[in-house]
Amino acid sequence: MFTLGIDSGSTTTKGVLFDGEKIVRTGILPTSANPRDSIHKLYQSLYNDEVAYTVSTGYGRELLETADKQITEITCHARGAAFLNPTIRAVVDIGGQDCKAVLLDNGLNVVDFIMNDKCAAGTGRFIEVMMRILEEDIKNIDSFVEGHEPINITSMCTVFAESEIVSLLAKGADKGDIALGIINSICRRTSFFAQKLNLTGDIFFSGGLAQFEIFRSTLESYLKIPVHTSPLSQYAGAIGAAVIGYNKVKRQA
Protein backbone atom coordinates (compact mmCIF):
# COMPACT_ATOMS: atom_id res chain seq x y z
CA MET A 1 0.00 0.00 0.00
CA PHE A 2 1.19 3.50 -0.87
CA THR A 3 0.02 7.02 -0.22
CA LEU A 4 0.59 9.93 -2.54
CA GLY A 5 1.38 13.49 -1.49
CA ILE A 6 1.33 16.34 -3.98
CA ASP A 7 2.44 19.89 -3.24
CA SER A 8 1.36 22.44 -5.81
CA GLY A 9 3.63 25.40 -5.10
CA SER A 10 3.82 28.67 -6.97
CA THR A 11 7.05 27.77 -8.79
CA THR A 12 7.22 23.98 -8.77
CA THR A 13 4.82 21.11 -8.25
CA LYS A 14 6.24 18.23 -6.24
CA GLY A 15 4.95 14.76 -5.54
CA VAL A 16 6.08 11.74 -3.53
CA LEU A 17 5.01 8.16 -3.08
CA PHE A 18 5.26 6.85 0.49
CA ASP A 19 5.13 3.20 1.62
CA GLY A 20 4.73 3.84 5.33
CA GLU A 21 8.45 3.84 6.00
CA LYS A 22 10.30 5.55 3.23
CA ILE A 23 9.80 7.73 0.21
CA VAL A 24 9.86 5.38 -2.74
CA ARG A 25 9.46 7.83 -5.60
CA THR A 26 9.60 11.56 -6.13
CA GLY A 27 8.60 13.79 -9.02
CA ILE A 28 8.91 17.49 -9.72
CA LEU A 29 7.58 19.76 -12.47
CA PRO A 30 7.59 23.50 -13.02
CA THR A 31 4.16 24.79 -12.04
CA SER A 32 4.17 27.04 -15.12
CA ALA A 33 1.24 29.14 -16.17
CA ASN A 34 -1.14 26.25 -15.79
CA PRO A 35 -0.96 24.77 -12.30
CA ARG A 36 -3.93 22.51 -13.01
CA ASP A 37 -2.04 20.75 -15.81
CA SER A 38 1.09 20.39 -13.71
CA ILE A 39 -0.67 18.86 -10.74
CA HIS A 40 -2.62 16.43 -12.92
CA LYS A 41 0.46 15.44 -14.93
CA LEU A 42 2.42 14.75 -11.78
CA TYR A 43 -0.46 12.85 -10.26
CA GLN A 44 -0.70 10.59 -13.31
CA SER A 45 3.03 9.94 -13.39
CA LEU A 46 3.13 8.88 -9.74
CA TYR A 47 -0.24 7.20 -9.28
CA ASN A 48 -0.52 3.41 -9.33
CA ASP A 49 -3.13 0.84 -8.27
CA GLU A 50 -1.67 0.44 -4.83
CA VAL A 51 -2.16 4.08 -3.91
CA ALA A 52 -4.73 4.04 -1.10
CA TYR A 53 -4.96 7.73 -0.35
CA THR A 54 -3.91 11.02 -1.94
CA VAL A 55 -3.41 14.31 -0.13
CA SER A 56 -2.83 17.58 -1.99
CA THR A 57 -1.30 20.70 -0.49
CA GLY A 58 0.11 24.09 -1.53
CA TYR A 59 -1.46 26.99 -3.38
CA GLY A 60 -2.99 24.80 -6.02
CA ARG A 61 -4.22 22.09 -3.64
CA GLU A 62 -7.80 22.55 -4.76
CA LEU A 63 -6.99 21.84 -8.39
CA LEU A 64 -6.66 18.10 -7.93
CA GLU A 65 -10.25 16.90 -7.67
CA THR A 66 -9.21 13.25 -7.25
CA ALA A 67 -7.34 13.97 -4.01
CA ASP A 68 -8.95 12.41 -0.93
CA LYS A 69 -8.05 15.38 1.18
CA GLN A 70 -6.61 18.85 0.95
CA ILE A 71 -4.39 20.11 3.73
CA THR A 72 -2.58 23.43 3.96
CA GLU A 73 1.12 23.72 3.28
CA ILE A 74 1.70 24.83 6.88
CA THR A 75 0.61 21.52 8.34
CA CYS A 76 2.21 19.47 5.56
CA HIS A 77 5.57 21.22 5.67
CA ALA A 78 5.74 20.73 9.40
CA ARG A 79 4.86 17.06 9.17
CA GLY A 80 7.25 16.47 6.28
CA ALA A 81 10.09 18.22 8.04
CA ALA A 82 9.49 16.24 11.22
CA PHE A 83 9.51 13.05 9.18
CA LEU A 84 12.85 13.93 7.59
CA ASN A 85 14.35 15.02 10.89
CA PRO A 86 12.51 14.27 14.15
CA THR A 87 14.92 16.35 16.25
CA ILE A 88 13.70 19.66 14.85
CA ARG A 89 11.26 21.99 16.65
CA ALA A 90 10.62 24.55 13.93
CA VAL A 91 10.43 24.86 10.16
CA VAL A 92 11.51 27.81 8.07
CA ASP A 93 10.30 27.59 4.51
CA ILE A 94 11.23 30.03 1.77
CA GLY A 95 8.77 29.40 -0.99
CA GLY A 96 8.47 30.86 -4.44
CA GLN A 97 6.09 33.58 -3.37
CA ASP A 98 5.82 33.42 0.36
CA CYS A 99 7.84 32.64 3.42
CA LYS A 100 6.67 30.86 6.51
CA ALA A 101 7.91 29.79 9.90
CA VAL A 102 6.23 27.07 11.90
CA LEU A 103 6.77 26.22 15.54
CA LEU A 104 6.35 22.62 16.70
CA ASP A 105 5.89 21.16 20.16
CA ASN A 106 7.64 18.08 21.50
CA GLY A 107 5.01 15.87 19.91
CA LEU A 108 5.90 17.54 16.59
CA ASN A 109 2.49 19.17 16.31
CA VAL A 110 2.09 22.68 14.94
CA VAL A 111 1.64 25.13 17.80
CA ASP A 112 2.10 28.45 16.02
CA PHE A 113 3.04 29.81 12.64
CA ILE A 114 3.55 33.03 10.76
CA MET A 115 3.38 33.72 7.06
CA ASN A 116 4.66 36.53 4.92
CA ASP A 117 2.53 36.51 1.84
CA LYS A 118 2.29 40.21 1.23
CA CYS A 119 5.70 41.07 -0.14
CA ALA A 120 8.05 39.44 -2.65
CA ALA A 121 11.18 40.43 -0.75
CA GLY A 122 12.10 37.53 1.51
CA THR A 123 10.78 34.91 -0.90
CA GLY A 124 12.26 32.77 -3.62
CA ARG A 125 10.97 35.29 -6.12
CA PHE A 126 13.47 37.83 -4.82
CA ILE A 127 16.40 35.53 -5.54
CA GLU A 128 14.97 34.59 -8.90
CA VAL A 129 14.70 38.20 -10.03
CA MET A 130 18.18 39.05 -8.77
CA MET A 131 19.81 36.06 -10.42
CA ARG A 132 18.22 37.03 -13.68
CA ILE A 133 19.88 40.43 -13.54
CA LEU A 134 23.20 38.80 -12.74
CA GLU A 135 22.59 36.37 -15.61
CA GLU A 136 23.60 33.46 -13.42
CA ASP A 137 21.95 30.12 -12.95
CA ILE A 138 20.86 29.57 -9.35
CA LYS A 139 21.99 25.94 -9.69
CA ASN A 140 25.65 27.00 -9.47
CA ILE A 141 25.17 29.44 -6.63
CA ASP A 142 27.36 27.61 -4.10
CA SER A 143 30.46 27.66 -6.30
CA PHE A 144 29.58 31.07 -7.69
CA VAL A 145 29.82 32.84 -4.33
CA GLU A 146 32.65 30.80 -2.85
CA GLY A 147 35.44 32.97 -1.46
CA HIS A 148 33.56 36.17 -2.20
CA GLU A 149 33.04 39.23 -0.02
CA PRO A 150 29.38 40.22 0.32
CA ILE A 151 28.31 43.68 -0.82
CA ASN A 152 25.61 45.08 1.43
CA ILE A 153 22.28 45.34 -0.40
CA THR A 154 20.27 47.98 1.47
CA SER A 155 16.93 48.02 -0.37
CA MET A 156 14.15 46.06 1.28
CA CYS A 157 11.88 46.00 -1.73
CA THR A 158 12.40 43.75 -4.75
CA VAL A 159 11.93 46.57 -7.21
CA PHE A 160 14.39 48.89 -5.48
CA ALA A 161 16.90 46.10 -4.88
CA GLU A 162 16.77 45.41 -8.58
CA SER A 163 17.82 48.94 -9.46
CA GLU A 164 20.42 48.88 -6.69
CA ILE A 165 22.01 45.84 -8.31
CA VAL A 166 21.83 47.33 -11.77
CA SER A 167 23.76 50.36 -10.55
CA LEU A 168 26.28 48.17 -8.70
CA LEU A 169 26.90 46.30 -11.94
CA ALA A 170 27.29 49.58 -13.79
CA LYS A 171 29.97 50.57 -11.31
CA GLY A 172 31.78 47.36 -12.10
CA ALA A 173 31.12 45.52 -8.83
CA ASP A 174 31.92 41.81 -8.79
CA LYS A 175 28.93 39.59 -9.55
CA GLY A 176 29.85 36.98 -6.95
CA ASP A 177 30.12 39.69 -4.29
CA ILE A 178 26.72 41.01 -5.26
CA ALA A 179 25.20 37.53 -5.22
CA LEU A 180 26.53 36.91 -1.72
CA GLY A 181 25.11 40.27 -0.65
CA ILE A 182 21.73 39.21 -1.98
CA ILE A 183 21.90 35.92 -0.09
CA ASN A 184 22.80 37.77 3.11
CA SER A 185 19.92 40.13 2.59
CA ILE A 186 17.26 37.46 2.19
CA CYS A 187 18.63 35.31 5.02
CA ARG A 188 18.80 38.26 7.39
CA ARG A 189 15.25 39.19 6.58
CA THR A 190 14.06 35.61 6.94
CA SER A 191 15.69 35.29 10.33
CA PHE A 192 14.12 38.51 11.66
CA PHE A 193 10.80 37.26 10.46
CA ALA A 194 11.18 33.77 11.92
CA GLN A 195 12.41 35.06 15.28
CA LYS A 196 8.98 36.51 15.92
CA LEU A 197 8.02 32.99 16.93
CA ASN A 198 10.68 32.83 19.66
CA LEU A 199 12.41 29.84 18.13
CA THR A 200 14.66 27.85 20.43
CA GLY A 201 14.94 24.27 19.16
CA ASP A 202 16.66 23.11 15.97
CA ILE A 203 15.27 24.36 12.69
CA PHE A 204 14.46 22.58 9.50
CA PHE A 205 14.94 24.67 6.40
CA SER A 206 12.72 23.77 3.46
CA GLY A 207 11.80 25.11 0.06
CA GLY A 208 13.79 25.23 -3.15
CA LEU A 209 16.65 27.29 -1.75
CA ALA A 210 17.34 24.74 1.00
CA GLN A 211 19.28 22.58 -1.45
CA PHE A 212 22.10 25.16 -1.50
CA GLU A 213 24.58 25.05 1.37
CA ILE A 214 25.24 28.79 1.24
CA PHE A 215 21.62 29.56 2.12
CA ARG A 216 21.60 27.07 4.96
CA SER A 217 24.83 28.29 6.52
CA THR A 218 23.95 31.98 6.12
CA LEU A 219 20.55 31.45 7.65
CA GLU A 220 22.13 29.55 10.52
CA SER A 221 24.60 32.36 11.19
CA TYR A 222 21.77 34.86 11.50
CA LEU A 223 19.46 32.65 13.53
CA LYS A 224 22.22 31.35 15.82
CA ILE A 225 20.36 28.05 16.08
CA PRO A 226 21.34 24.83 14.24
CA VAL A 227 19.64 24.75 10.82
CA HIS A 228 19.14 21.39 9.12
CA THR A 229 18.19 20.45 5.63
CA SER A 230 17.84 17.20 3.79
CA PRO A 231 18.37 16.20 0.17
CA LEU A 232 14.58 15.87 0.15
CA SER A 233 13.99 19.35 1.65
CA GLN A 234 12.26 20.59 -1.44
CA TYR A 235 9.74 17.77 -1.09
CA ALA A 236 8.93 18.46 2.57
CA GLY A 237 5.37 19.58 1.81
CA ALA A 238 4.62 16.61 -0.43
CA ILE A 239 6.19 14.22 2.07
CA GLY A 240 4.09 15.65 4.88
CA ALA A 241 0.99 15.23 2.74
CA ALA A 242 1.84 11.59 2.02
CA VAL A 243 2.65 10.87 5.68
CA ILE A 244 -0.59 12.41 6.90
CA GLY A 245 -2.43 10.39 4.24
CA TYR A 246 -0.77 7.19 5.44
CA ASN A 247 -1.75 7.83 9.05
CA LYS A 248 -5.34 8.44 7.99
CA VAL A 249 -5.52 5.13 6.14
CA LYS A 250 -4.02 3.28 9.09
CA ARG A 251 -6.46 4.88 11.49
CA GLN A 252 -9.38 3.94 9.28
CA ALA A 253 -8.25 0.32 9.01
Binding site: Y59, I71, T72, E73, I74, T75, N109, V110, V111, F113, M115, D117, K118
Partner: peptide, 16 residues
Protein backbone atom coordinates in the same frame (compact mmCIF):
# COMPACT_ATOMS: atom_id res chain seq x y z
CA UNK B 1 -7.37 40.72 -2.60
CA UNK B 2 -6.21 38.62 0.36
CA UNK B 3 -9.02 36.06 0.45
CA UNK B 4 -6.78 33.25 -0.84
CA UNK B 5 -4.16 33.89 1.82
CA UNK B 6 -6.82 34.29 4.50
CA UNK B 7 -8.24 30.90 3.64
CA UNK B 8 -4.85 29.22 3.85
CA UNK B 9 -4.09 30.88 7.17
CA UNK B 10 -7.39 29.99 8.70
CA UNK B 11 -7.30 26.43 7.38
CA UNK B 12 -3.79 25.93 8.78
CA UNK B 13 -4.82 27.46 12.10
CA UNK B 14 -7.82 25.19 12.41
CA UNK B 15 -5.80 22.12 11.33
CA UNK B 16 -3.55 22.87 14.26
Amino acid sequence: SDIGQLNTRMAAFIEM
